[in-house]
Design a protein around this nucleic acid. Structure first.
Lengths: 212, 212
DNA sequence: GTCCGGCGAGACGTATCGTCTTGTCGGCCT
DNA sequence: AGGCCGACAAGACGATACGTCTCGCCGGAC
């Protein structure tokens, strides 16, 4: 029943990834079709249906692969994140002792990733699929988002140990304060996503908007 | 060419709204089909194609109608918001002079709306459609979200006048600090969406997470 | 009473779905 | 070296939904 993965064709897999990413970029996610991917990749439909259960799965793997390539090309150890709610690559978040500067640097990097046209179409497609599809959302969040998001929590806990963040603050909620507005603005295109916005978020979240 | 709206059948329109909302709730947005809506509503397909350009448009109008009904039933003047990134009904945000209490009250109400199963399926569908469809997102945000979101800005400006928020703070970004994490947690089902979470967001955003 | 246009119904050709069948080809085991 | 096994490319298949269209029907305006 289960196909023999040791006999799997690496060439077909590559071609499918490339075709899926290209089509999503060119005609959009809804009009990207399994038949279309197969035709473009020069592959039989069955080869796709044999290894994946939906076009969302195909695209997700293609995107993970793309991120891995990019991470490898960029130097350090691969991570597998990229381009959605984070931007803290596998490197972790720097800890120079200056929490505000560290957070600004990472959020600025995230902004740049979110604005990278290379990732835009597939990342949006995955996000859209996740909104209406809980099972897929779970996999998507766990695989692509959580690893990087967890790094923020780690950095915030270090800041708590250093006395730069109040001890009773929940680091998960604190992290949402930085990351969610970015993700939201990106998803809903509700305004420009630039370094200034990232900086303000960090400032307001760290020191509050009330008089000090 | 353009159909004569004075001859439009109110009964068909109602039936279409009801069928669309029911189907989205029962089989999900992707499997909700124009043919299905027409059949369920006891209506010819052409009647739908004559007045709407896509199933997203149908659902959006149905949702607006549903919100209007609910708002009317609830008492005051209709508004047309409900159930997404806000929760500040047409009433505006209360101004008791206690900014923190006012914000918590409104965010708690928003949480309750977001958790209302009546709205969940269609609201998610609209959000998902908007992510991958810029033109629709624009209409969606402008019609359903902005009116309520603007009320936060108004309330925050009042707080600035009262000296409870620093004058140099951008009220739009400040508002994102409260609203985006809520919306994000709802969209990605990344954790429980309850009153406690809402309260923490308000506290952290107002006073910051750094030592005071 | 007649006319106009929206209405319900559903036929039509096209496209994609997911499954299934056919024949080819390359790697592995003997 | 020869034979076997299973993934592969190609595409046929019935099912479904698309969006357009053509029918009568019917109700309000004139």
């Amino acid at each position: 029943m289960a196909p023999d993965s040791t006999r799997r064709s690496a060439k077909s897999r590559r071609a499918i990834y490339d075709a899926a990413l290209a089509l999503v970029g060119e005609v959009g996610y809804p009009k990207t079709t399994i038949e279309g991917i197969a035709a473009r990749a020069g592959v039989g439909k069955q080869t796709i249906y044999r290894w994946w259960s939906s076009k969302a799965e195909v695209l997700m793997e293609a995107f993970v692969d793309l991120s891995a390539q990019a991470a490898e090309a960029a130097g350090g150890a691969a991570d597998g994140d990229a381009a959605h709610g984070d931007g803290a690559g596998g490197d972790g978040i720097p800890d120079t002792g200056d929490l505000e500067a560290d957070l600004k640097a990472v959020l600025r990097a995230t902004v740049d990733e979110l604005n990278d046209p290379r990732y835009e179409a597939p990342a949006r497609a995955l996000a859209a699929e996740g909104v209406g599809n809980p099972a897929f959302a779970e996999e998507f969040v766990a695989t692509l988002l959580m690893p990087s998001l967890e790094l923020y929590v780690k950095r915030l806990r270090a800041a708590q140990d250093a006395g730069q963040v109040r001890a009773e603050v929940d680091p998960y909620i604190a992290r949402d304060l930085f990351v969610s507005p970015l993700a939201q603005r990106w998803l809903q295109r509700t305004g420009p996503l630039d370094h200034t916005y990232a900086d303000r978020l960090v400032e307001y979240a760290l020191h509050g908007i009330a008089p000090r």
